[in-house]
Design a protein around this nucleic acid. Structure first.
Lengths: 152, 152
DNA sequence: TATTGTTATACTCTATAACTATA
DNA sequence: TATAGTTATAGAGTATAACAATA
């Protein structure tokens, strides 16, 4: 019994490894890395942002954002524009290529979700989603969550 | 409906992020990184190995193993010993500290699995494990798996 | 005085290619 | 000739600290 739990955790970790490697390869085909794609994702959902806001959203240092934006500017996904009211800040905005890529990544994300659960009957899907919620709740109870991490 | 699937995928990705950050922090307290801990894990399950075997097990370059072993030697987790029959090779073995740490990490892995599924009734746990298998099968069908990745 | 972003510096993980020692 | 591991080199992600420009 206890061993079943360990086996399930191992399968979760296998899933983590598989998703990580696969998304990495897929992004590489677009000339992106996970960190840079994450930045595009935030821009896609929140619109043009100053680097400071990006640092908070990605929960990384300001220095790191400078590097990520440098890379995305060089590869043509975003531009640095002057902030309309604060001359210290720069607004990071999509180029056409960046906007098109981000939109496509979002579409593919939805398609991937459909493939993942294809042919899984509704009741079994519900049960799985339930278990997922349970696990995330258990982690939150133990102070392990994105919010808890953000507070540090 | 289709949106439920996307929401479930998003929760899987949240779980991935949470587990990644949490394990990273936990390992850091032991003076380890994920890559170095992975190497210790392999050593724990397969015994002393030449670096070449470690490169295959971790699926990284030989050069990378040199760096990881350098770090683990410096921090006192492993030693490089001469290979008994092949003078080109070096055997990577645990120090006492390394062996004790690896054993503790394995214990904590099992404890973590128990916490994760605590209070989840057996039938709901089964349903979750089922869904997990389904998702991994779907990925395998699409050529996305650790084995498929290994073949490249 | 506080904030935004950059420069300087450093560490880890990752890779390929050239090279040494040994098989 | 092939294999084990290292040196050389490079790129990405991450961090802290010092600093410039602006608020």
């Amino acid at each position: 019994m206890a061993d079943d739990r360990t086996a399930a955790l191992d399968r979760i970790l296998e899933l983590v490894a598989v998703l990580d490697t696969d998304s990495r390869e897929s992004l590489a085909r677009d000339g992106l890395t996970p960190a840079r794609a994450h930045l595009l994702w935030v821009l896609q959902h929140q619109g043009p942002l100053p680097q400071r806001a990006l640092a908070e959203a990605l929960r990384v240092s300001a220095r790191n954002i400078t590097g990520l934006v440098d890379g995305l500017v060089d590869s043509g996904f975003v531009t640095r524009e002057p902030h309309p009211t604060d001359r210290r800040a720069t607004l990071v905005s999509f180029t056409e290529h960046g906007a098109a890529t981000a939109a496509r990544l979002e579409r593919e994300h939805g398609e991937f979700a459909r493939v993942l659960f294809a042919d899984l009957p509704e009741d079994r899907f519900r049960a799985f989603a339930d278990g997922l919620d349970h696990v995330l709740d258990r982690l939150r109870e133990h102070g392990v969550s994105l919010d808890a991490q953000a507070e540090r």
